[in-house]
Nucleic acid binder design. Structure first.
Lengths: 141, 141
DNA sequence: TATTGTTATACTCTATAACTATA
DNA sequence: TATAGTTATAGAGTATAACAATA
C-alpha cells in the first residue's frame, strides 16, 4: 500500500524529470522559431484553426495571437483564408513551407533524443515504452 | 533486436510525452513568478552563484541576467553579496522569503502532478518509478 | 447586444554595444 | 589585456483598451 508520501515523491520526481528533459530538448535543438511561434505552427499542423481558438489553446490574448500569426504569414509558413460560414472568422492553416519547417524542427528535436535513447539498454527502453503510454494518460486527464 | 525506426519512434514519443507533461504543469499551476525568474530562483536553491554562472546556465546574456536578478533582489527573494576572493564578482543567494516561494511553487506544481499520479494503478506507478531513474540518466548525459 | 479580429499603446524580457572596476 | 558586472538603447512578445465588422 503506497503512502501519501510515496505518491508525492513519485509525482515530484516525475514532474522534474519531464521538465528537465523538456528543457534539454529545447536548449539542445537549434530553434529557428521562437517557442510561442513553433507552438502555433504545431497546433496548425493538427488542423486548421481560427486565431481565437489558437489564443485560447495557447493562453495568450487575441492581439498577441494576431501578432504571432501575422509574423508567420509574412514568413510564408501559414495561410489566412476567410471562413465561408462566418464572416467574422479567419481560418489559418499551414503552407507547404510551414509543414516542412515543422517536420524539420521535430526531426532535430527527435535527433537529440534518439542519440540519448540509443545508449540505453533494451530493458530500459522497454520501461520507457510503457512509461510513454502512462504519461499520455496523465497529460490528457 | 530493435530497428533504427523503433529507437526513433520511442525517442519521439518520449520527447513529446515529456514536453506535454511539462507544458501542462506550467499551465495548470499558478505561477507567481515568470518562468525565467523562477528558473533562476531554482538554480540559487541548489547553491549560491554569480550572475555570470546564472547567465551561462540559463543561456541568456549578462545584461538580461542583471535585470532578472535585480528584480528578484527588489522583491526580497534573493540577496547580493560581494565575493571576498574576487572583487569583480557578486554572489547571489536565496533569502528566506525566496526559499519559501520556491517551496510553495514546487508544492503547487507537485500538487497537480500528485492528483494525476494518484489515479494510476500500482503497476503503472511502478513503471513510472523506474522510468524516472532512466530519464534522469538521459537528461544528464 | 455579443463575438471575432485588428489597431493603439505601454510594459517586460531579450540582445548588442559601450562603460567601469578588478584581476 | 581579459573578465565580471552594469547601463544605454533597440527589437520582440505580451497585455489591456478601443475600434470595425459580422452574427
Amino acid at each position: 500500500m503506497p503512502t501519501d508520501a510515496d505518491l508525492a515523491n513519485l509525482a515530484s520526481d516525475l514532474r522534474l524529470a519531464c521538465m528537465r528533459i523538456s528543457r534539454r530538448v529545447r536548449f539542445e535543438s537549434a530553434n529557428v522559431l521562437a517557442p510561442h511561434a513553433f507552438s502555433v505552427l504545431a497546433r496548425l499542423g493538427e488542423q486548421p484553426r481560427t486565431p481565437r481558438e489558437l489564443a485560447d489553446i495557447e493562453r495568450v490574448s487575441a492581439p498577441s495571437m494576431t501578432r504571432t500569426t501575422t509574423a508567420l504569414v509574412e514568413r510564408g509558413l501559414i495561410d489566412r483564408a476567410p471562413d465561408p460560414e462566418d464572416g467574422r472568422c479567419v481560418i489559418l492553416s499551414l503552407t507547404a513551407q510551414g509543414e516542412a519547417l515543422l517536420a524539420q524542427t521535430r526531426a532535430a528535436r527527435d535527433g537529440w533524443m534518439s542519440s540519448r535513447v540509443a545508449t540505453l539498454s533494451r530493458a530500459e527502453r522497454d520501461v520507457l515504452r510503457e512509461a510513454v503510454q502512462i504519461l499520455a494518460k496523465v497529460a490528457e486527464q
